[in-house]
Amino acid sequence: MIKFTINGKLVQADQGDMLLTVIRREGIDVPSQCHHQAVEPSGACRLCMVEITRQEWDGWSKFVTSCLYPVEDGLMVTTHSAKVIQLRKTIIDLYLARHPNSTEIMRLASEYGVTRTTYETVADGDDCIMCGLCTRICAHMGFSAISTVGRGHDKEIAPPLKEAPTDCTGCLSCANNCPTNFIEFTRDSNSLTIWGRTFETLACSQCGKTTITRDFAEHLSKTRDIPIAYFEVCDDCHRKETAKTMGRVVNWTREVQA
């Protein structure tokens, strides 16, 4: 068990835990755009920076991305010192210049009292903050259909060869987890289009509601050993089914007990 302090409060954590995990567990709000508990942290967005010091550092401190910093015995962490706030404001300032139209960035800016950017605004700036969360999630799902392409100013997230990705199943994990909702997809009554590829969607055999894409259902069916028919019923209808079954079990139990 590792013992250290966060904002003066003594906390305990397991070896290998990252600072951000413990900070959040303590109910402290530290912003982050690129973090997702299901995938490896990458420290891309820099917003989760905190100030750390130790008794023996004689008043010296340093700034680290808390999502990537493993807990240490005797560490003294400050999440909202004046220096950290200033650092986060600078990062938000830069984001605001690059993504002037992003509602998520604007929300963050107002939270930190950054009213306007001190840099030159990128007029045609899109909302992709290059955090790479979509690529990490896609790899974690086992598809690796998208990746970062190019570098520097021209870096972007794209499928290989910038063509409709063959490895994509239209699971929408990338779009649903994008912190700035940049990844677009369109839905039709029986199809879904993302990354320039159109997928056939399944419809619930009971209520007719669209469920997931056929490709994704087939993938899950193959890798998780679930019959494909399971995906032809939507979550709501599955729940209704379960409730009915449970109701019958309860009635039956009552009868037996009576």
């Binding site: 392409v149 060869l161 490895d167």
Partner: peptide
């Protein structure tokens, strides 16, 4: 290696 990774490295 996933094709996306190969493409990422070759454009980097």
């Amino acid at each position: 290696v996933p094709l996306s990774k190969v493409f990422s490295v070759s454009t980097f």
